[in-house]
């Protein structure tokens, strides 16, 4: 009985500040759509221009990652309503996620260092890497241009 009355209180309080309503939903949907289209445009450009590995390609990939995080912010803040929650609640959820900063840097750096070490000290590894794909596999690659 008591629980029932307390949950009813949340409802009424939330009812009061439910964010910007339908208008806000439409605005965020448009933002998400536009950002996705920009991401796809960059991805398509990287494919069409057949960019070589290098700084510019890495820069574009970084840009796509930044746009990805921007989209994630819109979904969490508005669709999941976190922006309108109490600050302490936001902190208990967002602060632990900062572990990812270390997590990403440490693991990717480790992977990169492993690659460099193997390329330097393991001739067999380099030999394996230079092996061309067999004909039957190239057949699969050639098929891509044709219509099934």
């Amino acid at each position: 009985m008591e629980q029932h009355s307390t949950t009813a209180v949340y409802h009424h309080e939330e009812h009061g500040h439910a964010g910007g309503g339908t208008k806000e939903v439409i605005r965020i949907t448009v933002y998400l759509t536009v950002i996705t289209l920009v991401e796809l445009a960059i991805g398509f450009y990287m494919y069409k221009a057949a960019l070589p590995e290098g700084f510019f390609r890495h820069f574009l990939k970084g840009l796509i990652c930044a746009l990805m995080l921007w989209k994630a912010f819109y979904i969490v803040a508005y669709f999941m309503h976190l922006k309108h929650e109490i600050r302490n609640l936001i902190m208990t959820i967002v602060v632990p996620l900062f572990l990812f900063v270390w997590f990403i840097i440490a693991f990717l750096a480790d992977g990169n260092s492993y690659k460099n070490l193997r390329n330097k000290y393991d001739p067999y590894h380099i030999e394996q890497n230079d092996k061309k794909a067999p004909v039957e596999h190239e057949h699969g690659a050639q098929k891509e241009g044709t219509i099934e």
Binding site: G43, I104, F107, G111, N112, K115
Partner: peptide
Amino acid sequence: ISYGTIRFATNSWPDPN
């Protein structure tokens, strides 16, 4: 992140496109 680690540890990767 494990996917990213393996990609960083691999010299070459298929093009998703």
